[in-house]
């Protein structure tokens, strides 16, 4: 038995980690900083899957589509209402939550393969909508430009640590890393609280859960809503660091990648999500360098990451089909 750390103390630890991570951005090159931002976005996205699949037992292949909804909502709100980027990200999370709430009602009545297939159709259907409605900007998408780095940030004492210019990429990193840490903190609190206990009860035995008074369908809707708000937020963050919302960003592959990330992190392990996210960002780069060593044809560079990720996914499922759950429930 280890001593339980209070959630407030954990907040303090997280804040310290956040400061260290941000200070570190002064010591690495721009590419790494950008990758750090990518990892932060994936952490949030994977947390959304972990919340849903790891704790409530529902598998969604459509979270790429929810991310798209969050991204477009944030972009439209930012460009149309000229609100601060922070408010735009919140709009993204809210849009995700609304979509998740609606989807949750359907999902609550679908089991296993049906839910997977239905959300798959969503993953394909939603992004293609961009071509139908003019305001969504068609295939090119919409730009999401949060502008220059504010001076309070670039002239702050934190920015003086290390060296190098304060680029937009660094700014993205500064924004996304605290959000990712906050997400983990919030999700942890949700999961250790009464809602999380309901999720777990429902996942391990729905019949027993309903007998002890847990309303399974409303719990499923809640799981979908929370999870989708995170997905929406992740989508908005992704659009922000890419500078655009476009159908090409939110492909079927993205939905699959998220599931892969969650599986690699052991589905029900919240902290594992950080590793999963790093793997997702590292694989393309590692395989790109392997590809260059192998002679570097475009074919190899383009496809090696997919091959490696998929192999990892298959092996993880074969070797550790129960993910980290085995370790968690001692």
């Amino acid at each position: 038995m280890h001593k339980r750390i209070s959630s407030l103390a954990r907040l303090g630890i997280f804040a310290a980690i956040g400061l260290v991570l941000i200070a570190l951005s002064g010591f690495v090159d721009e590419l790494r900083v950008y990758q750090g931002a990518e990892v932060a976005v994936y952490v949030v996205a994977i947390a959304s899957i972990t919340l849903l699949t790891g704790y409530s037992g529902q598998l969604s292949l459509g979270h790429g589509a929810i991310m798209a909804i969050g991204a477009y909502a944030a972009t439209l709100a930012f460009n149309g209402w000229h609100i601060p980027w922070m408010a735009a990200l919140a709009v993204g999370a809210l849009a995700g939550a609304v979509a998740g709430y609606i989807l949750g009602f359907a999902a609550a009545r679908l089991s296993g393969p049906y839910l997977a297939g239905t959300t798959l159709a969503l993953a394909v259907g939603i992004p293609s909508l961009a071509n139908q409605f003019h305001v969504l900007g068609g295939e090119q998408g919409l730009t999401f430009d949060i502008g220059d780095v504010p001076t309070w940030a670039s002239h702050s004492w934190l920015a003086k640590i290390g060296h190098g210019d304060f680029t937009t990429y660094k700014w993205f990193y500064w924004i996304t890393v605290p959000i990712a840490l906050a997400t983990i903190w919030v999700v942890r609190n949700i999961l250790t609280g009464p809602i999380g206990r309901r999720f777990k009860a429902m996942r391990s035995n729905p019949t027993a859960a309903s007998l002890i008074g847990i309303r399974v369908s409303s719990t499923k809707v809640a799981a979908f809503t929370y999870s989708s708000s995170l997905a929406g937020l992740a989508g908005a963050m992704l659009a922000m660091i890419l500078g655009l919302s476009a159908p090409l960003v939110f492909t079927l592959t993205l939905s699959f990648t998220l599931v892969t990330g969650a599986v690699l992190s052991g589905v029900s392990n919240l902290y594992g999500g950080i590793i999963g996210a790093m793997v997702l960002v590292a694989i393309p780069e590692l395989s790109a360098s392997v590809a260059t060593h192998l002679g570097g044809s475009e074919k190899v560079t383009a496809n090696l990451p997919g091959v490696v990720t998929s192999l990892l996914l298959i092996l993880t499922v074969l070797i550790l089909p129960n993910g980290a759950r085995v370790r968690r429930s001692k």
């Binding site: 699949t53 037992g57 598998l59 292949l61 089991s111 296993g112 393969p113 997977a116 996942r203 391990s204 592959t253 699959f256 599931v259 892969t260 599986v263 475009e298 074919k299 190899v300 383009a302 496809n303 090696l304 990451p305 997919g306 091959v307 990720t309 998929s310 192999l311 996914l313 298959i314 499922v317 074969l318 089909p321 129960n322 993910g323 759950r325």
Partner: peptide, 28 residues
Amino acid sequence: AAADIAPVIATLGILGLIRGVAGLIWGN
């Protein structure tokens, strides 16, 4: 508990693997 989900995820992995291998062999 993974009996329902693990096979679905495995087929997704196979889909990704196959697409990647096809890309490696025949290009995109």
